[in-house]
Amino acid sequence: MDDLISVIIPAYNAEKYMDRCLNSIVKQSYNNLQIIVVNDGSTDNTKKILEKFAEADNRIVVINQKNGGVSQARNNGIYIAKGKYMCFVDSDDYIDINMIQKLYDGIKKCELSVCGFVNYFDNEEKDGPSPFGNTNGLKTRNEYLKIMSKYLYSVYFGALWNKLYLSEIIMKNNIRFDDKISFAEDFIFNIKYLEYVTKVSIVHNNLYYYYQEVKNSLTKVVDVQYRWQASYTKYCCCIEQYKKMDMYNECYREIYSAIAYELIGPTYDITKENYKGVKTAKESLKKIYEEELIKKAIKNVKKPQMVHRIAKISLFLKSYGIFVFCMRVWIKIQRYDGK
């Protein structure tokens, strides 16, 4: 008999998408599933929909909790998971009928199985990035980490939902989600899990449908400072784990380049003229760029963009006023060129 696989689905006000999500799971070609849905204090009809599905399919287990966030919901799912393997699906997404079977076929030879995905919008589908090309196969953990270091900002590596995990590794090493954060918590989970992996199975097929631009999606629009702080925490954890796995020296330029590229978005947001004034913009930039980690990123970025050049000059002159002024000029130049 095939091994039991636990599928964990956090759900918050997901009535619009719950049918589509659960139908894609209960109809999987791989049948031996424990389907755990954690209702995170929904105020719509999510609970009723889950009860209907649970009555019709005894593989479905519903947990109702007070609203505590996606990390807490996933952790509560992990606590009751009984499967040898574990995977995660977001309630506004859905999966290919053969996804779990293909991931299962891959993980039997290793400790982590990863597939491709489709960016799914209301009127459009677009294949997600494929860092490993179009071939299936096994990669050593170090091979995987090396490629990952070049794409640390990629959903492919950071997401939970295109992966199948060995439950023993999660339970034995107490790998859980930080319930104080709801941004980059999945990346942190993955990088901690990789410490205990020897090989990774790559399934090139795009089997997960990642639905975007949804009001109540788990990917929430958040304050720029909060978003950056979460990214900072993510990269600190990343560096620590790469050191533990003896891959830091080989990958540090890629890691710091990824940090530098991720700085671009917050820097633009902070220095736009419709932000909270020059004084606030200067203070916000200082909070970010005074960190030693950020100074290293600006110094080591492989292909510096204009933001990095402006940052380097401003840090040298110790002037965040110049930083704001130069960025606003650069933003205007780009708008003019784009006309």
Rank of each mutant, 00 (worst) to 15 (best):
K276A: 08
K295P: 11
Q305H: 12
C251M: 01
E290Q: 10
F325A: 12
A311F: 02
R309W: 10
G277T: 07
K287C: 05
M306I: 14
L317R: 15
C326L: 15
T280M: 10
K303G: 00
D246W: 03
T267M: 13
Q241K: 11
Y275G: 01
K276H: 11
T271Q: 00
M327W: 07
P266W: 01
P266V: 02
I313Y: 12
I239R: 06
I288W: 01
I322M: 15
N274W: 09
S284R: 07
E290R: 12
A311H: 05
M306Y: 14
R328S: 01
T280Q: 10
F325R: 10
Y320F: 14
F325E: 09
I264F: 06
F323M: 12
E273D: 15
R309E: 14
Y261H: 04
L263T: 04
M247G: 01
Q241I: 12
N300R: 08
Y252L: 05
F316P: 00
V329G: 01
L263C: 05
N249F: 09
H308F: 02
E292A: 11
V301D: 06
F323N: 06
C238Q: 08
E292I: 13
Q241F: 05
D246N: 15
A258T: 06
C326T: 06
I288L: 05
A281D: 10
Y320Q: 02
P266A: 00
G265S: 14
T271K: 03
E290L: 13
S319E: 03
K295N: 04
A281R: 11
P304G: 02
Y275R: 02
T267Y: 03
G321Q: 13
D246Y: 06
F323L: 06
L317K: 14
F325Q: 10
K282T: 09
S257A: 05
V324I: 09
A281N: 07
I255L: 12
K272S: 07
N274P: 13
N249G: 03
R328C: 08
F325K: 13
Y320W: 13
Y242C: 03
Y256E: 07
I264T: 12
P266G: 00
Q305F: 11
E240W: 01
I288E: 03
K244S: 07
I264G: 03
M245T: 03
R309D: 08
K244V: 07
Q241H: 07
M245P: 09
A297P: 04
E262F: 05
Y320R: 04
